[in-house]
Amino acid sequence: MSTDTSQTPPEQLLYSTMLFYGCWGSLALMAVTYALYVLGVLTPHVPLEVVTTLWSQPVRVYLEQGNVPTGWGWAVLIGKGDFINFAGIVLLAGMTILCYVPLIGAYMKKKEPIFATIAVLEILVLLFAASGVVGSGGH
């Protein structure tokens, strides 16, 4: 008979549960926003006819002719059919950051300030990387 007394800490369960449902929710959001785009419910920023003519062109040409911003500039176009799907992508990419937030309080409650500090630092590093400040992300 095995007597395994180890248990998964509640903060790890919270993290994994948030990540599980957040990822599936993000994928569902992407499916819904894609449907809004292809069904024409929301007007796209770059008309589909223009997109198809630019498929074989370099990205630079698409950005110029479609008047598409780079970096986080897409955020101002979030209400457009061809950019609303970014909401699900951003949520999916940001789930790790969101999952770290409740860990800070959980670790402070357990009187583990080093782990709480690591969670804060992880959030800051991920936000900094996504900001595009260093030119490696944020697109």
Rank of each mutant, 00 (worst) to 15 (best):
A129M: 15
G71D: 01
L121A: 15
V120W: 01
V133Y: 03
L54M: 12
P9S: 12
A119L: 02
S26K: 03
M108A: 13
T8I: 15
L126Y: 01
I84A: 00
T53M: 07
T96W: 08
L63T: 04
V50Y: 09
Q12S: 15
L13K: 15
E11F: 14
L77M: 01
P9H: 14
C23R: 03
Q7F: 06
C99W: 01
S131W: 03
E49T: 11
V46Q: 05
Y100S: 05
P113G: 12
G105F: 10
S56M: 08
C23H: 07
R60G: 01
F128D: 05
L36F: 07
P10E: 12
L42C: 03
W74E: 02
M18Q: 08
L98I: 07
A31F: 08
P58D: 13
V46I: 06
F128P: 01
D4Y: 14
K110I: 06
L92N: 02
I97P: 00
G94Y: 06
P69D: 06
C23F: 09
V76I: 10
S6K: 15
Q65D: 12
V46K: 02
P10H: 11
D4H: 15
P69G: 05
A75P: 00
R60V: 04
A106Q: 07
H139I: 08
F86M: 08
L48R: 10
Q57V: 01
L124F: 07
T52V: 15
M95Q: 13
A87V: 12
G94T: 09
L127F: 10
S136C: 14
A116W: 04
D4L: 12
G94N: 12
G71C: 04
L14G: 13
M18K: 05
T8E: 12
G73R: 00
A116S: 10
L27Q: 05
F128W: 09
G94A: 15
L54W: 05
P102R: 10
E11T: 13
I89G: 06
V133Q: 00
Y34W: 06
M95G: 09
L48T: 11
W55E: 15
L14N: 14
Q57G: 09
L36H: 05
W24F: 13
V61L: 04
G66M: 00
F20M: 10
T53N: 09
V38I: 06
A129P: 09
Q65F: 04
A31I: 10
V120S: 04
